[in-house]
């Protein structure tokens, strides 16, 4: 993967387009639940392990998760140094595994799009 400054704008645009698609897709679940009678949501709280990452990384992934319809960051666990974990509330994932798979997919895509020369 070429993580140079030169490709940064293209990677950012690519990520923005993917994120826009993701928002449309997850909006559909929310809209369907909102417009039909009864409740289709299967709410859950999952612990997402981010690993050894910077403060900026934690803040950015938290913001992106909250901006995505149906998911909400509840906060970071622990003292805020070393190994990072955040708690995420999800409304429309069938189980914890699929929720974490989607969240980690977003984390990896974000990391790839903002990395410059090996550091996020």
């Amino acid at each position: 993967m070429n993580a140079s400054l030169l490709t940064l704008p293209f990677r950012l645009i690519g990520f923005a387009l993917w994120f826009a698609k993701e928002i449309v897709v997850s909006s559909l679940a929310v809209v369907r639940d909102s417009l039909t009678p009864g409740h289709a949501s299967t709410p859950r709280v999952v612990r997402m392990e981010l690993g050894e990452v910077s403060d900026l990384h934690v803040v950015m992934i938290s913001i992106l998760i909250t901006l995505t319809p149906g998911t909400l960051t509840l906060g970071q666990l622990g003292g805020g140094t070393g190994f990072r974990e955040i708690l995420v509330h999800s409304m429309y994932h069938e189980d914890d595994e699929s929720a974490l798979a989607d969240l980690h997919d977003m984390d990896q895509r974000m990391t790839r799009s903002i990395t410059i020369g090996g550091r996020s």
Binding site: P43, P69, L72, H89, M91
Partner: peptide, 13 residues
């Protein structure tokens, strides 16, 4: 939490 989720999305986007 579900309400906060809905508002968080609307507030930003």
């Amino acid at each position: 939490y579900m309400r906060a989720s809905a508002v968080g999305t609307a507030a930003g986007l």
